[in-house]
Simulated scan of single mutants.
Amino acid sequence: MRTKNSVGERIRKLRGMNTQTEFANLLGITQRAVVNYETQGRIPRGSILKKICSCFGVSEKWLLTGSDEVNNPTQQEAAVCSKMGDMSPISKQEKRQLADFIVSEKNNLGDTSPILDLQQKLLEALQEQNNLLRENAHLRLQLERRDMRIRDLEREVAELREARKGPSAYGAGVAGSAG
């Protein structure tokens, strides 16, 4: 899946005559990760990108996009990097390139404050919705209790009427015939 202008192709070019295992050991990653970068089109994490760029004297911009100049280090420089085991210092040119890259990315992103404002409003709306749902559930519970109490009271009233109807109807019938 590798193309001539891919990150994987540039990583393979930097690896040069080193095996994938040697390259992986140099960066402190697995050989499978190198395979994924070179053949599967995966992009290394930021820390790995920085390590590759530092050890091989290339800019992140070049590694990611293919644009910008590349300084091919000698095998000796790569060996020094592997002995250091960590990233070597970044040159002034690389710092400037990185700063330019960050500025260009910020310009590409633009002002994100409207997005942050919308996210804040969405969060507030979701919190309000949750509060309303809780309140709704509480009110439904109160209504259910009220309805149960009304049914109980209606049952009691019906029982009282039945209790009152029985003797009063008998008494009314007796009183009506006497009168």
Rank of each mutant, 00 (worst) to 15 (best):
Q40K: 10
T30L: 02
G28Y: 00
I90T: 14
D86R: 15
G85L: 10
F23H: 02
K61E: 11
I52K: 02
K50A: 09
N107H: 10
A78S: 11
D100R: 14
G66N: 06
Q31R: 12
N108K: 13
Q97R: 15
I48E: 08
N25P: 00
T39S: 06
A24M: 05
Q20V: 03
K50N: 08
C81A: 15
Q76N: 12
G85P: 11
D111T: 01
I52C: 01
P89V: 13
L109C: 06
A24L: 05
L109D: 05
E69D: 11
S67Y: 02
K61I: 01
A125T: 15
Q93G: 10
G28D: 00
N107Y: 09
S113K: 10
E77P: 01
G66A: 07
L123T: 15
E124H: 14
G57D: 08
E38Q: 06
D68N: 10
I48H: 04
E22W: 00
Y37G: 02
K106Y: 08
Q31P: 01
N107G: 04
K50T: 00
G85M: 11
G16Q: 05
T112G: 05
S82A: 15
Q31Y: 02
G28M: 00
Y37F: 11
S88R: 15
V80F: 14
E38Y: 04
M17P: 01
S91F: 14
L27C: 06
L14H: 06
N18S: 10
D68R: 05
P73A: 04
M17W: 04
L63S: 01
E77D: 14
T112H: 09
E77H: 12
E77G: 02
E22D: 07
S67Q: 06
N107E: 12
A125V: 13
A33R: 08
L26Q: 07
C55D: 07
G57I: 00
L26R: 05
K51E: 03
E60F: 00
R96T: 13
I29F: 02
L14I: 14
S67L: 00
V70Q: 05
G110D: 09
V58M: 06
V80D: 14
G110A: 08
E60T: 02
N108C: 08
E22S: 07
L98A: 12
I43E: 03
V70C: 09
R32V: 09
P89L: 13
R96N: 13
D111F: 08
L14W: 03
L109N: 06
T65M: 02
E60G: 08
Q76A: 14
L98W: 09
Q31W: 01
F23M: 10
G110T: 04
K50R: 12
